[in-house]
């Protein structure tokens, strides 16, 4: 079953001069697939990810996620859509420093407001436990180690049971041990929970172990 479908997606950069970054990209991703986007710097893989993430709306072509056509939706609709259907993991954890670990995980769910506060808290604990950082739940988020913070960020990405997790260099800022841990988590999510994952990465080891590798070059998918 297709979770994501991109049809003839093109994108231009206008600074310093007009330049076509993405050239009519067709891509479809099935449910439960763990997909790595690789390629040299400047090949457009991150740009593609941000188009797929719905945050970048300045593109040509069509985008459909979870059966919903997203091309042409306005920012507010897209915000709501991201909240419910997409989880993000970035190179940096981007946890809110004033909040505890638990609060950080709960925020997207509070925004979604699908469950009661008590249920959200229980779910947040469940995700933290799954990622092995439940002990840290009540600590301020900036008191954790880098690896722990990234795991909390993954828990936060998972809290609303998204259709897709999108990762932009999710292991880019981690040592090899933590890179391994994060990969294992992604792998388990994909295998056990049928979680769709799209991750941009430079790490060949990481990419090799994923289900499917898409290599990009000069704005095109080459394999």
């Amino acid at each position: 079953m297709q979770v994501l479908k991109a049809h003839k997606v093109s994108k231009y950069f206008y600074e310093p001069e007009k330049f076509k970054v993405l050239k009519e990209i067709d891509l479809s991703v099935n449910k439960g697939e763990f997909l790595s986007l690789v390629g040299k710097s400047g090949c457009g893989k991150s740009t593609l990810l941000y188009v797929l993430s719905t945050m970048d709306t300045d593109y040509e072509g069509e985008l459909e996620i979870a059966g919903q056509r997203l091309t042409g939706s306005d920012q507010n609709q897209l915000s709501k859509f991201r909240n419910a259907h997409i989880g993000f993991v970035f190179q940096f954890h981007y946890l809110l420093p004033e909040f505890t670990v638990l609060q950080n995980v709960m925020i997207p769910a509070l925004k979604l407001a699908k469950y009661t506060l008590r249920e959200i808290e229980a779910r947040a604990y469940e995700k933290l436990t799954m990622l092995g950082v439940q002990e840290q739940a009540l600590k301020p988020s900036n008191k954790l180690s880098g690896g722990q913070q990234q795991r909390v960020a993954i828990a936060r990405a998972l809290i609303n049971d998204p259709d897709i997790i999108m990762g932009d260099e999710p292991t880019g800022n981690l040592d090899s041990y933590n890179t391994h841990v994060v990969f294992e988590i992604f792998n388990e999510l994909a295998q056990r929970y049928k979680q769709t994952i799209i991750a941009v990465t430079h790490d060949e080891e990481f990419a090799k172990k994923s289900d499917r590798i898409i290599e990009m070059s000069d704005g095109k998918i080459v394999s």
């Binding site: 993430s53 915000s79 993000f88 970035f90 809110l96 925020i107």
Partner: peptide, 16 residues
């Protein structure tokens, strides 16, 4: 700025 960016990525609209 970072917090605002991540909030927006996670689904907070401009008006939020």
């Amino acid at each position: 700025m970072k917090d605002i960016a991540i909030l927006k990525a996670m689904g907070f609209s401009g008006s939020d």
